[in-house]
């Protein structure tokens, strides 16, 4: 059995819409980095499915850390775009430390959105798996 891990999360578009109302607290800059915010706008305004998908992906990645009881390091888990639009994960600060402590290796994420939800799945290998693979390759 491969000792990988998966995380999954779902964010309703309505939750994002509520965060964008004028009376809501301006919390998005505490959840999305400047670079991510730049990826979440369209010509007609905020990209609600894009924001929901990105938030879901961050939570899915956080679940890989097995750090229940700790606050989400929202800004330390960035969901960016590779050429071609594929989502890629960049970790920094406390998120990177949590990942290291949990022996999280390479992370892949996949995001889907269809009104009224966005869903994201994250997968990682772990150090133990990589070590086992290296041992197999060197045998």
């Amino acid at each position: 059995m491969l000792p990988g891990r998966v995380g999954i999360d779902l964010v309703p578009f309505a939750r994002v819409s509520r965060l964008l109302t004028p009376e809501a607290e301006p919390v998005l800059p505490r959840m999305l980095s400047e670079e991510e915010l730049g990826l979440c706008v369209t010509e007609s305004g905020p990209d609600i499915p894009g924001i929901a998908g990105r938030l879901a992906a961050k939570e899915a990645v956080f679940k890989l850390f097995h750090a229940a009881g700790q606050p989400m390091p929202w800004l330390g888990i960035e969901i960016l775009k590779e050429n071609g639009g594929r989502p890629v994960v960049r970790l920094s600060g406390r998120a990177a430390r949590l990942a290291r402590d949990a022996r999280v290796g390479h992370i892949e994420v996949s995001i889907a959105h269809d009104d009224p939800f966005a869903v994201a799945v994250a997968f990682c290998d772990t150090a133990t798996e990589r070590e086992a693979q290296q041992q197999l390759e060197s045998a």
Binding site: V11, L19, E25, P26, V27, R30, F62, P71, M72, L75
Partner: peptide, 24 residues
């Protein structure tokens, strides 16, 4: 987890205390 960020903001507004999100 989503409303937690809003809660932190609400506490800041009500208390006047700035909360360091990375050291919560």
């Amino acid at each position: 987890s989503l409303s937690f960020v809003e809660l932190v903001y609400a506490i800041e507004g009500a208390s006047g205390v700035e909360i360091d999100f990375d050291n919560i």
